[in-house]
Simulated scan of single mutants.
Amino acid sequence: MNTLTPPAAESAYAHVKDALLSGRLPAGEMLSEGDVAAELGISRTPVREAFLRLAAEGWLRLFPRRGALVVPVAPGEAEAVVDARLLLEGHAVEVAVATPDTRDALVAGLRALLDRQRAAVRAGDLDAYAEHDSAFHLALVAAGGNAVLTEFAATLRERQRRMIALSVGAAGERAPGFVAEHEALVAAVEAGDAAGFRTVLRAHLHDAHLPGAGR
């Protein structure tokens, strides 16, 4: 927690941001300080501070005396994030599969995350699924052993989490298909097939985040 931020404001910030990233607050939704304050049992002042912070980060747009608008994913943002992920994950897997021990450790870690994804889907817990999906893709980048690239990938996690929540949808019909695509990614890693991994990853990311786009 930021020691310079009052606990109530930090709590309001965390609560609203989690709702934004999980998709519980959809793009275009108008939020009121009073409603959030009543929900959390706090005054409006810390909620106002939280709204200001989220607006500075680009998640909300403030309208005096009206509230705050949930900002949609910016035009081109999904394409840019997908391109970055293709480069980061493809390069990392190419490095990782060149060393059998690294490859085997990566496969074991990914399979554990797959188990968690399946459990989340069975339970209908899409928030947990989104967290495990993000961890799965970050593990791919980390396996490349480049701390700078791993740190950069981590900065994309919030955008990724929101994109995952939007792509899965409120009812979660698409989540089982995404898990199956993750299984294909793990199979390519286990086979040491970096080129095949890139092909599967490109299709997976386009299907999930850029439906209808060319590959």
Rank of each mutant, 00 (worst) to 15 (best):
L185R: 01
V82S: 03
H182N: 15
A147Q: 11
L106Q: 08
A154D: 08
S134V: 15
A68V: 01
A128H: 04
R103Y: 02
A119V: 12
A74T: 06
D127M: 03
M163G: 07
E190A: 15
A135H: 02
G109T: 10
L113G: 01
G109R: 09
V141W: 08
S134Q: 11
D104R: 02
L114C: 03
G76A: 08
A78M: 10
G144V: 02
D83K: 11
A68Y: 01
L106K: 00
A143M: 09
G172D: 11
G196N: 00
A194K: 03
R159K: 10
Q117R: 07
P75H: 07
V121N: 03
D101Q: 12
G192N: 07
S134K: 04
A119D: 14
T102S: 13
L110Y: 11
R159A: 14
L126Q: 08
A80Y: 02
V70I: 06
A96V: 09
F136K: 02
T150V: 13
L185W: 03
L88C: 11
L140H: 06
A119L: 11
G169T: 10
G145L: 09
V107R: 01
S167R: 14
L86V: 09
P72T: 09
S167G: 14
G144E: 10
L166Q: 14
V189E: 05
G145A: 11
A68E: 05
L88P: 13
A170Q: 13
A153M: 06
V95N: 08
G169D: 04
R157A: 15
F152T: 12
L138E: 13
F136N: 03
E158I: 00
A191L: 09
E158W: 01
V168H: 08
G109A: 00
A139V: 00
F178I: 14
H91S: 10
H182E: 08
L106V: 01
G172K: 05
E151F: 08
A175I: 14
V141S: 10
S167K: 09
G124V: 14
P100G: 10
L114P: 01
A180R: 13
A188C: 10
G145V: 00
V189S: 11
E89N: 04
V107E: 06
H182W: 00
N146W: 13
A154N: 03
A139G: 05
L69M: 13
L69S: 05
A139N: 04
T150A: 15
A171E: 15
N146G: 08
I164S: 07
E158M: 09
V189I: 12
H91K: 10
A80C: 03
A195M: 04
Y129Q: 07
A92E: 00
R66L: 15
E151C: 04
R159F: 00
G144K: 00
L106C: 04
A170D: 13
R174D: 09
A165M: 02
A180M: 03
D133L: 02
R162A: 13
